[in-house]
């Protein structure tokens, strides 16, 4: 991890792409780590009875991956203060989910640098999630 310095960030800077090849293991692991025991996230037979082709990623995992995408770039001194996502197509095993984003705004307030980011996570079927986030960075970092 090579943290960014607020002074070096510009509007339009692109975050490093995060690519996740989704597997049943990742989906089940994310669901249980977030304490979400809904069977559609670990039981393929149950998912099929609900009309889904397979188990699919839960929303708490979506927000988990979003925060990883942000701090993989921004580093350990970043504080995520806002995350707003719109939920799109589900992510199933075998799908590749590609997180891309860019800096949409910069400001300073109360002694920290504020970075606004617009991002999306796309699969072959369309956007899995899209949204905006805000994180803060130390000004002297």
């Amino acid at each position: 991890m090579s943290p960014v310095r607020f002074a070096d960030v510009s509007v339009g800077d692109e975050l490093p792409t995060l690519t996740i090849t989704m597997t049943a293991t990742l989906i089940a692991a994310g669901a249980i780590a977030t304490r979400d025991f809904m069977p559609v996230h670990h039981d393929r037979d149950y998912a099929a009875r609900q009309g889904a082709p397979d188990i699919f990623m839960n929303i708490l995992s979506d927000t988990g991956y979003c925060s990883r995408f942000l701090t993989d770039w921004a580093g350990p001194d970043a504080m995520v203060t806002r995350l707003a996502i719109r939920l799109g197509v589900p992510a199933f095993p075998g799908h590749t989910v590609v997180y891309t984003g860019a800096v949409a705004g910069l400001s300073t307030e109360r002694g920290v640098g504020v970075v606004d980011i617009a991002f999306r996570a796309a699969t072959d079927l369309g956007d899995h999630v899209s949204g905006t986030a805000t994180l803060t960075l130390p000004l002297d970092g």
Partner: peptide
């Protein structure tokens, strides 16, 4: 457990 599930290696 959470950090491992998402392979999030943020050391904090």
């Amino acid at each position: 457990h959470w950090a491992a599930a998402f392979a999030d290696d943020n050391p904090v």
